[in-house]
């Protein structure tokens, strides 16, 4: 029982950050129809920047337990690269073939990887176990780090927020309308340029926030971006491209599966995930929730 709880718990923790990145991928794919390979790179940027902010927060003599505030701030602040990337690169390929859009985001992956190496070098970095400041908690007989619980909670709140925005606000309605039919949005006099900038920024922020939140509980390495994109990719394929519900369920499936595999047959960790991805693509290429847009 104890081990089962901690396995599932660590799976849900995986899922919570995976969901954020995958949600960023989905919202951009839903509206712009661009599959953004660079969402993993945004995640890595968020992680590195998160470390810097947390360390200077602690060095500045602020109370340690509050480190999560500047951490979230760091994730949100990094959203500024969204408009730059969208206006500087992505906007040129909206009318182009999907394959070229994919290649452009691949170019972005290459560039961001070196930007990270340039600023932070190649050696792994950590926040030095600052997450343990919140201690551990006993749940169903298993000892679980409280910080990880907070991250899961954050992720749930963000998921609820996204759901609220999409369903109940004007911006959300515009997003859903343009995801269905871009021409309609334009015909109704919506400023598509602004919508694209906002949506891409939202996608970026979700990625950087995911990276920032995960970082106190793990270490950053320069490959984390290209590794995560493959997982996020698995999430959206299983859940269905463009679907938020799909990102949520997909993240849970991939996250839990990953932690179950690690604790039982570590050799099979990613193998099982890819096999499921391929099975989903073969049996139901639109994914579990494909067809329901955004």
């Amino acid at each position: 029982m104890e081990t089962i709880v901690s396995i599932i718990f660590s799976g849900v923790f995986n899922a919570s950050t995976l969901f954020l990145v995958a949600a960023g991928l989905q919202v951009v794919f839903g509206v712009q129809k661009v599959f953004n390979l660079a969402c993993g790179s945004f995640y890595a940027l968020g992680a590195y920047f998160g470390i810097v902010v947390v360390k200077s927060f602690v060095a500045g003599g602020f109370p340690k337990p509050l480190f999560i505030v500047p951490l979230i701030g760091a994730g949100l602040l990094l959203g500024f690269i969204g408009p730059i990337v969208e206006r500087g690169l992505i906007k040129f390929v909206y009318d182009r073939d999907e394959t070229f859009q994919l290649l452009l985001t691949f170019a972005l992956v290459m560039m961001i990887e070196d930007v990270i190496k340039f600023i932070w070098g190649t050696s792994p970095q950590t926040t030095g176990g600052i997450d343990l400041i919140y201690g551990r908690i006993n749940l169903f007989g298993a000892t679980l780090p409280v910080y990880n619980l907070i991250v899961i909670l954050c992720s749930l709140i963000i998921a609820a927020l996204i759901g609220y925005i999409l369903l109940n606000t004007k911006f959300g309605r515009i997003i859903r309308a343009t995801a269905d039919k871009k021409e309609m949005g334009e015909a109704l006099g919506i400023n598509m340029k602004m919508v694209y900038i906002k949506v891409f920024t939202l996608g970026t922020v979700l990625g950087t926030l995911g990276g920032a939140l995960v970082i106190p509980a793990t270490a950053v390495v320069s490959e984390m971006g290209v590794e995560l994109i493959v997982l996020a990719f698995a999430v959206v394929v299983i859940g269905g491209l463009g679907s938020m519900k799909g990102a949520f369920i997909g993240a849970l499936i991939v996250g839990v599966l990953k932690s179950v595999a690690i604790s039982t047959y570590p050799e099979l960790e990613m193998l099982t995930i890819y096999i499921i991805v391929i099975a989903v693509l073969v049996i139901k290429p639109q994914g579990l929730f494909g067809g329901s847009k955004v």
């Binding site: 599959f35 073939d97 999907e98 394959t99 994919l102 493959v230 990719f233 698995a234 394929v237 491209l241 570590p266 050799e267 099979l268 960790e269 990613m270 193998l271 890819y274 096999i275 991805v277 391929i278 693509l281 290429p285």
Partner: peptide
């Protein structure tokens, strides 16, 4: 059976499947 982005993704998944196979075994 698929084209465009689905084809690209499916081929990517097979490539990565083999990658993990090589890595883990």
């Amino acid at each position: 059976r698929y084209i465009k982005i689905y084809f690209a993704m499916l081929t990517l998944a097979f490539g990565m499947l083999f990658y993990t196979f090589l890595l883990k075994f």
